[in-house]
Design a protein around this nucleic acid. Structure first.
Lengths: 244, 244
DNA sequence: CGGCCAGGATTCATCTGATGACTTTCCCCT
DNA sequence: AGGGGAAAGTCATCAGATGAATCCTGGCCG
């Protein structure tokens, strides 16, 4: 077993057995490195791995802390890498998303509150009112997030959020066909929100499934290449334009 | 932006833009570190992060290679950390598993081949025949994996495999009530396999959902503490049972 | 001519030591 | 008692050297 593996599994074991609890600060690098029998460099690599997986969080100058270990923390680690998925694999992900969106829609319909319904319809109206594709995409995300929230399963909600984030990278709404797609999308949203308002889980599930399927079809049809940070959000003037 | 972040995002960007393709070998540490403007140590930490996420794979003496970037590769990274999830969060995961197992069961019923049915029933017979809890657990896993395979979505199959691996850590079959639980589990399996054999997606989905729900109930009822590599040794007087 | 093998070159793995940056704590001064 | 600043603690980064595993090249032998 390599030194980094020894540190990684050793640290993980400490957390699994409760010797290091959620939110707790882990021992300093020098100390922990000696205990695990590895150098500081190797230990740091192991800590970085756990940090990438959302298990620990290093804070410069303060220490390294175990995360809350909530499912959302773990699932969040997928968001950075799901963006690297080539399109063929993404379509398999869509099937999962379709099933889960249908499920949360049904559950939301069963558990909806008047406030949820109000929020959903106000988001729909905002979506129909705006012309900015970016804003529409953002509102679309919040619409679905609200439904997922109403289903009362934070883990599932964050998992779907990750899936949606990946889809949004394609920005179908900015295509020439964008306006037409948005009209159809808005219509889907009304059907879905109405089913939820009516406390009709079956219709809600059907509407959600159809909506995702529609999105999936668009993606198959257009298959636009995904580009990193295409929003032009990129603040730092780092020399990153250096690609051939 | 820290040096490690710079290296991490720089490397990720190279992969996202296709400058580094799937399966390709990335430049040597010294060279890449210079290009990204960070030391070898920082670069190595960034590479380790990507390795933990299943994006790259370092091979001692050979080089570091970009993975195939299939969804399974990414999902596999969850398996190491999902084990750290406290029980409350795990129950949320179970809801997801329930929905997805029902879906794959239905899809498997629709697409089943005679060979799939044969395999399923032979696994059931082996399960009913063995007395070894560990072997039963292994066969149970293979039974469900076979169904997921028949659903023809490798991503979904690997996701469910990760969920199941987490559940197996609890080893409910080794409890005093184990034999009784196993009898019920075996009965569930027969119902499920029969529904699939009959090409009855609805019944298959229902049976799968009921089966997962049953497992979930057992877990809620017994809530045994999960122990890393818990084969019953572990004599350290660490007094770690302290969770409220 | 072809296969085997030995040694060098390449690359990742690890350790050591030193310095900088950031945070937190605590004591001193007002 | 409160504010400010020094000092300690901790992570972040870099540089250099050595070890280990793999890959490749070229020569040797059959």
């Amino acid at each position: 077993m390599s030194a980094v593996d020894k540190a990684f599994h050793g640290l993980r074991h400490m957390i699994a057995t409760g010797r290091l609890g959620a939110g707790e600060r882990i021992p300093p690098e020098a100390e922990l490195g000696e205990e695990l029998g590895v150098s500081r460099g190797s230990l740091r690599e192991a800590v970085r791995m756990l940090a990438a997986l959302g298990v620990v969080e290093p804070r410069h100058g303060s220490g390294t802390y175990v995360s809350q270990l909530r499912p959302e923390d773990i699932i969040g680690s997928l968001s950075l890498t799901l963006e690297l998925l080539p399109l063929p694999g993404l379509l398999e992900v869509y099937e999962i998303r379709r099933v889960l969106e249908a499920h949360v829609a049904a559950k939301a319909a069963a558990r909806r509150t008047p406030e949820t319904v109000r929020t959903l319809f106000s988001l729909i109206e905002a979506m129909e009112a705006t012309d900015d594709p970016a804003e529409a995409s953002e509102l679309d995300h919040r619409f679905h997030a609200e439904i997922a929230r109403a289903a009362e399963n934070p883990t599932l909600a964050s998992l779907l959020a990750v899936f949606r984030a990946r889809s949004r990278k394609y920005q179908v709404f900015t295509l020439p066909e964008g306006p037409e797609l948005r009209r159809k999308s808005d219509a889907d949203h009304r059907v879905l929100a109405t089913a939820i308002a009516d406390r009709d889980p079956g219709s809600a599930a059907g509407a959600a499934e159809a909506h995702v399927t529609q999105t999936e079809r668009w993606l198959r049809a257009f298959m636009p290449p995904v580009e990193e940070g295409a929003q032009g959000r990129e603040k730092s003037g780092e020399a990153d334009g250096a690609l051939s």
